[in-house]
Amino acid sequence: MKMTAQLAAAAALTVTATLAQGQTTDVPFALDWKFEGPAAPYFAAIDNGHFADNGLSVEITAGTGSLDAIPKVATGAFPMGFADINSLIRFLDQNPGAPVTAVMMVYDKPPFAVIGRESLGISEPADLEGEVLGAPPPDGAWAQFPIFAAENDLDMDAITVEPVGFPTREPMLADGNVAAITGFSFSSYLNLVRLGVPEDDITTLLMADHGLELYGNAIIANTDFAEANPEAVSGFLEAVAMGWKDAIADPAAVMPSLIERNPAADSDLEQRRLELSIEANVVTDYTTANGMGTIDDDRMAAAIEQIKTVYDFEGTPDADLYFTDAYLPEGGFPLD
């Protein structure tokens, strides 16, 4: 759905009203998903005073998928959010001029994955042909599946895709109703473990290990808000980086911040989910050498070329529309 001129104007009015009321230190933040392990660093940034140290009061709202925060931020309902940058690229192509861009990369290596079961015949990408794949339509991993299929010479017509809901995705695989699903590696894997699927029966095909050059989820900002409040955005990103540094240094220490907001969560399982995201998606060779938050221009160009193989851009793709390092320190945030 295209973002209308009226919505864009509403976004600008929302930002202007916020500024006029002197409430720019209140920064609502839209997450991509539920309050699970990888959300702990953001709550730690609140509880450990990192947002407050930057003069910010932050309230975090859960999301319903990695595309969810984009329209929330674009319409001005939230000044900051967390979303899949590849979905943002398509959104901005379909909604040119929408006031939203990525300002800090978090998942340098995206968690997009196909998760199957050895006992159901899934051990490598080619095994998906002739099988049923469960995929939630709003899922960020499903959005990238055509690129994964193209990079691995899969015949999409030979794969039966069954639209499923997020709550039923892993149970359907656990019950053998589908042979594989799309999802975030750390989420779907541990959800299957929790459902009693033996770990040695789970196949995780991380798309980044099978040809994808794409980046993953990033902090996104409403550009009207960012241009009017550059210090607030820079301070927000610094606090996020500090929250992740706390989590990397001691994952167990940040779990109480998560459990306080989600008392029903299994602390041990969510800590493991956080650790998986740190090891596979956040602390990479690139972020170790170059700091957290930045991107490599050549890799982004390659990612856009991959997207072009499965998506017809309405306009001319321009990386500068999708990501800016203007609110990051030079060299990003060191993780040590």
Rank of each mutant, 00 (worst) to 15 (best):
A226L: 06
E170C: 07
L206I: 03
T168N: 11
V193T: 09
I181G: 00
H210N: 15
A174F: 02
F145G: 02
A253R: 07
N191L: 06
R194V: 12
E260K: 14
S267D: 01
D246Q: 02
F236Y: 11
E231I: 07
V161M: 11
A264V: 07
M242T: 13
M242L: 15
G235H: 10
P263K: 09
E170F: 00
A150T: 11
P251Y: 10
M156R: 15
M207T: 01
W244I: 14
T203R: 13
E199S: 12
G235W: 04
V240D: 01
V240P: 00
L214Y: 02
A150E: 13
E227M: 10
L173W: 09
T168I: 07
S185C: 05
M172F: 12
I248Q: 08
S187H: 08
V161A: 13
A174G: 06
V164M: 11
A208E: 09
E227R: 14
A252M: 07
I147F: 10
Y189H: 14
H210Y: 15
L269Y: 02
L190I: 10
L237R: 09
S188G: 15
I219N: 08
M242Y: 06
V254W: 10
V193F: 00
T160D: 12
S185P: 04
D155M: 05
A241K: 06
P146S: 07
D266Q: 00
N152Y: 10
M207Q: 13
N222L: 12
E231M: 09
E162V: 12
N152R: 09
D157G: 07
D157N: 14
T223I: 05
L269M: 13
L237A: 09
L205F: 11
G216S: 07
L205Q: 10
P256M: 01
G216Q: 05
A149P: 03
F166C: 03
P146M: 08
E213G: 03
F148A: 04
L237H: 07
A218T: 12
T182I: 02
W244C: 05
A218N: 05
A221V: 15
S185F: 03
P263W: 11
F145W: 12
V240R: 00
P230A: 08
F166K: 09
I219W: 03
P256T: 00
N229D: 04
G235Q: 05
L205I: 15
A239E: 02
A239G: 08
E162T: 14
A264K: 10
D266Y: 02
G216H: 05
L206Q: 14
